[in-house]
Amino acid sequence: MIKKRQIILPVLAVLLLSACGGGPQLKPLSPKAALIQALVAKDNAAITQHKSILNNKRKTLNVVQLYQLAIEEKPYRLVSNSKLLLKNIHHYSLQQQIILKQMLLWAYAHPIYRQETGKQVRILQRAELLVAPSDINFNKCQSENLTDIKGCSALRQLVNHIISTHEMNETLNTMAGNDPCINLTQENIAGDAANLCLASRKGDLKINLLSVPNFLSDQWEQAIDS
């Protein structure tokens, strides 16, 4: 026969767990913490939901809204929307400027890369597809007298007070290394590279030439508190 005590103890345990909600309750995040979490996670819907706390912080809101364009992978819109900011970036806090610099580098690198490599993409149709050698040297494009250097994007001059020529060229070289249409050898390249290049040029395949920058929660907290 089962004793009453053996029945009562399990019942009491169940009642206690039910009273406590089955375990420890997590405190809801504050609006600022929720926004920071969304920014770190690149959750655009959540960012839009929580960014209203920045309505009285115009510069911080500008930074967040530009980052949303980066998350959506819209570098050309980010470039367009940042033109006024470029002239006033010195009014932003140091931490905001650090975030802005990385975003602007990511955004401006895309049109600069396209302008400086567009004529060097050549796909040859022989017995098989071939990618011809690309005559590319980003180092020739210095921040001074760009108008005298053939093939250099004028966009470089818009950001050269924020992004050094060395940083920009390193970024462009990274993009070239990820681009199947760029051939930095002296020989025609066949095989997968040629097929990938053709697919990307036709719009059938998206190639990630440069990843959207990531920022830590501490960086966003400092930017928001600035």
Score class of each variant (00 low, 15 high):
Ser30Gly: 14
Pro31Ala: 01
Pro31Asp: 09
Lys32Tyr: 09
Lys32Leu: 14
Leu35Asn: 02
Leu35Glu: 02
Leu35Lys: 00
Gln37Gly: 05
Leu39Ala: 03
Leu39Thr: 06
Ala41Asp: 15
Ala41His: 10
Asp43Glu: 12
Asp43Lys: 06
Ile47Thr: 07
Thr48Arg: 01
Thr48Leu: 06
Gln49Trp: 01
Lys51Ile: 02
Ser52Thr: 12
Leu54Arg: 12
Asn56Glu: 13
Asn56Val: 07
Lys57Gly: 02
Lys57Thr: 00
Lys57Pro: 04
Leu61Ile: 02
Val63Gln: 08
Gln65Leu: 07
Gln65Ser: 11
Leu66Phe: 07
Leu66Glu: 05
Gln68Cys: 04
Gln68Ser: 12
Leu69Gln: 08
Leu69Pro: 05
Ala70Glu: 15
Ile71Ala: 03
Ile71Val: 15
Glu73Arg: 11
Lys74Ser: 09
Pro75Asp: 08
Pro75Val: 13
Pro75Ala: 07
Tyr76Met: 09
Val79Arg: 00
Val79Cys: 03
Ser80Asp: 15
Ser80Ala: 11
Ser82Asp: 11
Leu84Thr: 14
Leu86Ile: 02
Lys87Val: 03
Asn88Glu: 15
Asn88Gly: 06
His90Trp: 09
His90Val: 11
His90Gly: 02
His90Thr: 11
His91Lys: 04
Tyr92Ile: 04
Tyr92Thr: 00
Ser93Leu: 05
Leu94Trp: 04
Gln95Ser: 06
Gln95Pro: 00
Gln96Met: 07
Gln97Thr: 04
Gln97Cys: 01
Gln97Tyr: 02
Gln97Glu: 06
Ile99Pro: 04
Ile99Trp: 02
Ile99Glu: 05
Lys101Gly: 00
Lys101Arg: 08
Gln102Asp: 09
Gln102Trp: 03
Gln102Arg: 01
Leu104Phe: 13
Ala107Leu: 01
Ala107Pro: 02
Ala107Met: 03
Ile112His: 01
Ile112Trp: 05
Tyr113Trp: 10
Arg114Ala: 11
Arg114Cys: 05
Gly118Thr: 09
Gln120Asn: 14
Arg122Trp: 05
Ile123Asn: 04
Ile123Leu: 12
Ile123Thr: 08
Gln125His: 13
Arg126Ser: 15
Ala127Ile: 15
Glu128Thr: 07
Glu128Ile: 00
Leu129Glu: 14
Leu130Gln: 13
Val131Thr: 11
Ala132Thr: 10
Ala132Arg: 08
Pro133His: 11
Pro133Gly: 06
Pro133Asp: 13
Ser134Tyr: 13
Ser134Ala: 10
Asp135Gln: 14
Phe138Ala: 00
Phe138Ser: 01
Cys141Ser: 09
Ser143Met: 13
Ser143Val: 15
Ser143Arg: 13
Glu144Asp: 12
Ile149Lys: 13
Ile149Trp: 06
Lys150Met: 09
Lys150Cys: 00
Gly151Met: 00
